[in-house]
Amino acid sequence: MEAFQKIHPLEFYRKFLQRSVRPDGRSLNDIRKTSISTGAITTACGSSFVKIGNTSVICGIRSEVGIPSFENTDQQTNIFVNLELGPICSNIYSSTKPSEQAMSLSSKLNSLVKRLDIPKEDFYFDQEGKVLWYLYVDIYCLDYDGNIMDASILALISSLKNVKLPRGIIENTNEYYKDTEQLRSLQINHYLFPLSFSIIEDFILSDPSNQEEQLSTSNLTITLNENFEICLLSYSGIKPISETILQESFEKLKNRIEYLKSLIDSAQEH
């Protein structure tokens, strides 16, 4: 059976999918076991670890202080997200050149951060906001078994909720001190709930594994906030997507939102 899987992977999958089951025993709509924990990295000011099946990512936030480079900074963001897909997670990635997939995912994550509506005042180092905190969110993939998008979005939101910034003190205009006894967290007004799908022929598979992603003709990722508003909708593939498929996918994600919310919230309590 293993030889058949290796030589004709698509035919192998088709045999399963026609019976509405996947080789790992899941039904088409089943999502792998998801777990979130926070605060494991003591050197970062916020961190989280997310595991979806075998896929695991770790996210840490580094804080730096700087003077904003120009005035009238409504468009300026103070959070920079980067995703690293290194050779540690899978042998398809090399350490010498950054993967294109990681770059494209990073830009999606950067646009999602703006949807969180974090008030500008939360980044003030001092009272007036002449000096600001800048947060560098780095997500490292530790094990790549598909659906890295969901894992990294969940890691991003739970690590930002875990951020603890010290109180800043400025003395003599250019001496900066931080008071680590008075910590505050960011006010994050929204949640992000992602769900990805892979479409293999006419079958829609929720939470695809690595092999399913490779066999798929198209991929769909939806991210909603807690008001069921779309934050990110990305579809790529060689076949056009029908409205009914989109509707169904939305329903599947809506059913999962409550569960994801409880996961994110309970991860903060420890």
Binding site: V65, G168, D179
Partner: peptide, 14 residues
């Protein structure tokens, strides 16, 4: 954006 602003090394005075 990276490195466009000056960085300070901060430490608690105590």
């Amino acid at each position: 954006m990276r490195g466009s602003f000056r960085l300070f090394y901060i430490q608690k005075k105590k």
